[in-house]
Amino acid sequence: MAGAVLDFFKITIPYWVLRIGGYLLPSSRLKERNDAFAKFIKRHRRYPTKNWIFSDVLYRIKSGPELRDPVRTFTTDKELGKIFISGVVGPSYNVPTIGVIRSQSELEAFQFPDRCFIKATHASGLNIFRERGEPIDYDVLAGWLKHSYYKKKREANYRDLAPKIIVEPPIFEGQDFYELNLFCYGEVKVIIRQYGNWRAKSSRRRRLYTAKWEDCNCSMGYPLAEVDKKPAKLDEIVAAANAIAAYFSLVRIDVYTDDNDFFIGEITHCHAGGGQSFIPAEAEIDVSKHIFGASKVNQMA
């Protein structure tokens, strides 16, 4: 009972004060920091620290000036990110592009293939997989062209992105593939192996490994999956990700592979908005040691 009361005064009340205050603030760096702090204490049930812990480092990136770095902004855009990837590791690593839609008139005139992925370039989570020529909901797509992910999430790397829609073909000729999320700090440090249907959250599972595919025995955000074999193309995937990671501090590089080939899908600068917890929670310290080094993590105040 005493713990619940303490949590109410330390977390719940400050959270709602920050949220209410955030609505009153004009769009600004202060509003971004206010939003980041409020979401951190809500999701992690504590205050952020200056320690080298994964969640705290993400918070510092999100609330500080780093997300406004022009390179982070450029590579957040799903169209422009391909230009960056092409320049660093070559165009063959990009998912092909069928077309890019920049306006209502272009949307109305665009001929969508019967099978294609449709994504907003300036947001996260706005995507449609057209499998068999299903009707296109033009009202939904028109809404994407007016959508501001920055105003919704206050992640600064989205602030200056122009609304666009990118259309891509199904990769690997529609055959099975899986996703890897490579967390890099100068180089690849930790990898999430994803399982399940991306459209059905209830089916999703994850397991974390080191860059050498040593099992970390933990997950993030979703239930823990069973141990799996090392991806066939892991060495090549890590080499490509390392080349891209050299331009950032902490960054996530998303890869799709069928074990015969792979594509770099996106460069993600603030994993899950900085709000996902580890499963189990105590694994965050060990994973942080893998990413940032044990000496930094062991300096915790």
Results as ranks from 00 to 15, higher is better:
245 A>F: 04
238 V>P: 14
239 A>N: 07
260 N>A: 07
62 K>H: 09
248 F>I: 00
146 K>Q: 13
127 N>V: 04
234 L>W: 14
269 H>C: 09
65 P>S: 14
257 T>L: 05
288 S>G: 05
164 K>P: 02
139 D>G: 05
138 Y>E: 02
209 Y>P: 13
134 E>A: 01
144 W>C: 03
149 Y>D: 11
80 L>Y: 10
290 H>G: 08
143 G>V: 04
122 H>T: 09
221 G>V: 09
88 V>H: 07
293 G>E: 06
97 T>M: 00
60 R>Q: 06
59 Y>R: 01
63 S>E: 12
161 L>R: 03
270 C>R: 08
123 A>V: 06
240 A>I: 08
55 S>Y: 02
56 D>M: 01
294 A>F: 01
114 D>F: 01
172 F>W: 09
153 K>N: 15
99 G>S: 01
158 Y>K: 11
16 W>K: 11
5 V>I: 15
157 N>M: 14
244 I>T: 12
228 D>G: 15
113 P>T: 02
228 D>R: 13
204 R>W: 12
104 Q>M: 04
154 R>A: 12
35 D>S: 15
6 L>V: 09
177 F>A: 14
21 G>A: 10
30 L>G: 12
108 E>W: 01
208 L>T: 03
166 I>L: 02
67 L>R: 13
66 E>N: 09
45 R>D: 06
49 T>P: 10
77 D>N: 12
26 P>K: 08
274 G>Y: 07
294 A>D: 06
61 I>Y: 07
300 M>V: 04
104 Q>I: 03
120 A>Y: 04
281 A>G: 12
178 Y>P: 11
136 I>W: 05
58 L>A: 03
119 K>R: 03
248 F>K: 03
228 D>S: 15
176 D>I: 00
264 I>G: 10
276 Q>W: 08
119 K>M: 03
110 F>V: 05
26 P>V: 11
284 E>W: 03
272 A>M: 07
143 G>K: 06
128 I>S: 03
157 N>F: 14
267 I>D: 02
26 P>W: 08
28 S>A: 07
141 L>P: 02
32 E>T: 13
116 C>F: 00
